[in-house]
Nucleic acid binder design. Sequence first.
DNA 1: CAGTGAGCGAGCTTCCGCTTGACTT
Length: 704
Amino acid sequence: MNLIIVESPTKARTLSRFLGKDYSLEATYGHIKDLPKSTLGVDVEHNFKPEHVVVEKREKEIKRLREQATKADKIYLATDPDREGEAIAKHVEEVIRGQEPEVNKKTKSKLKPLSSNLLIRRIVFHEITKEALEEAIEHPRSVDKNLVNAQIARRVLDRLVGYKLSPLLWKKVRRGLSAGRVQTVTVRLIVEREREIAAFKQEEYWEIYCNLKTQISKLKTEEFIVKLIKFDDKRAEIKNKKEAGIVVFDLEKSDYKIADVIKKEIRKNPYPPFTTSTMAQAAARLYHWSSKKTMSVAQSLYEQGLITYHRTDSTYLAQTAVDKVRKFIEKEYGGQYLPDKARFYKVRSKVAQEAHEAIRPTNIGMTNDKFQMTNGRFVSDAKVLYGLIWKKFVACQMVDSIFDETVINVQAKTTPEVKDLPTSRVYVLRASGQVMKFDGWRKVIPLSKYEEPGLPMVGKDEALDLVKVLSEQKFTEPPPRYNEASLIKTLEKLGIGRPSTYAPTISTIQVRQYVEKDEGKFKPTPVGLTVNDFLIGNFESIFDYQFTAQMEDDLDNVAKGNRKWQEMMGEFYSPFEKKLESVEKKAKRVEIPVEKLGKKCPKCKDGELVVRVGRFGKFVSCSRFPDCDYKEKYLEKIGMKCPDCKKGDVIVKTTKRRRKFYGCSSYPTCKWASWNKPEIKGATEKDKEIKKKTLSKLYAPCND
DNA sequence: CAGTGAGCGAGCTTCCGCTTGACTT
């Protein structure tokens, strides 16, 4: 009997379909051994010796593994082909051979002995196909000690950072706080962005457009709009109303002609197939899903066998899947949509570990109209996400979409009658647009807002008539706050965190109340700012954006056997330990700023009312707590009257599930409620109108 | 995950990365 051990039970089920009766499959459900939860578990005095214990939740799996092992002659450790998978493989072997006391005590005596000629071997494969598995079984090896050491180093370093710094925060800031290589940097990104926004100085600028007319026949004229881009060969930068007025004055007294018309063909590649990160970004942008939700929906698709594994950083595609989709494209859309050769996508991230494939449908014939989930709780959401994954995958193996781009440059010269000007001025104005002439992969993922640019047919030197000059006041905008999509994108780019941790990390920093989501955007809280400044101020090097990248380089060397992991840890730990000691001794406890309401406490008449944040959100309390325990509800007004009853104020409230919504302060008399912030109407209508007329951006880029 | 309305609350906690289930703050 042969036993194959993998990490995911779904993977086990899929593989069992390929294999005959002489193979059985078991899943570990992730790590089965780890450092203990309630102690450090690292002996820093003795070369960082880690203490690995059985993960409590996995005792059932371990028991089953051992039982199955007694029936086997050959065991294949087929955990994922990466650092973590190698460590799991080692732990499985230890557990099966009964090398840990806790397992021995509880279960060993009850179990039958292992087969005397038992072979335990490590195998790896990158795609879940019969061929890949058979190939892997042909080339078994033993567990790679160096790769396991790299995992130990990663684990120990994270444990030391997290379990040394968190208690320091309890002492110096507040109980229950936490710090870590990943979460602290994530908060740092949000804090620094917020400060950039606060420091941002808005600058005024103006954009100028001309509505021009061309004679297309004796009876017909056509109007189009051009945007000012240059004057006297310099980029047109118009800073205020006065400057804009001068330009408008000039343009109203100018002669217009076509300077040139440039046409070129533009080919656009399809996007790579989804990874965890890009899938989460797409679902966030298109449907405003949280990464947690996207991952849950993807999990249900994976469990139904509809998609490949959803926690991956790889864009690798199995050859068999590519062959099938190529046949599908040819049959369904025709040969002109099929490239000569299959497309390959390079992995973008340096730290990608190539353990899994890209996220793709397992059966390309399962089109969205045939799609049906037999069970699960996300039936309609699953269909939506599946459609996205399906389209992305099919499109990624189709030919380029082709556009004709036209750029019309118009020259405006002030007429000689304008006498007040020192010299005559030459302006360049431009209209541009792209027309799709062959859809290619856009057949499957159509452009979201495609409009024909509607440029006139004009020739060089053709004279034009001015209809109207339009000027528009604009202001430069600060960088945007992060949302889940842009945060994940940034983390991935920095190599911080893994596909399995993006969603949990985003949850953690919110549960700790370091950041909060406001209309989908992340803002730091006073706690977040205080903790960030404390940690960055004292431990800059660990939370440097480059730290993880450097760590990965070191781990690579450990994995290659070029370096001892204990040596790497020593280099990290000795300066860190010194710093810890000095901060422990010298740093004062820092106060988290509280928002003051500027009112005396009605109970003790001595303290002041302040806003505090408890487990369930904000509340008002006396500044003299715990001497005075006065408290009341916190009402967050947004400075607007209720749009329904017009009497109460609009206030921010939260549901039982902590979701934010807007309500009326005179509830329950007035029952008005809304998920979205009520908008002040009128202000943006004009903006939209002008934007619509601008030819420079006729359609929004569509990345879905 | 879907989720629209009480009143609680501020002192024994924490990391990252694998994997699923599970009614909760």
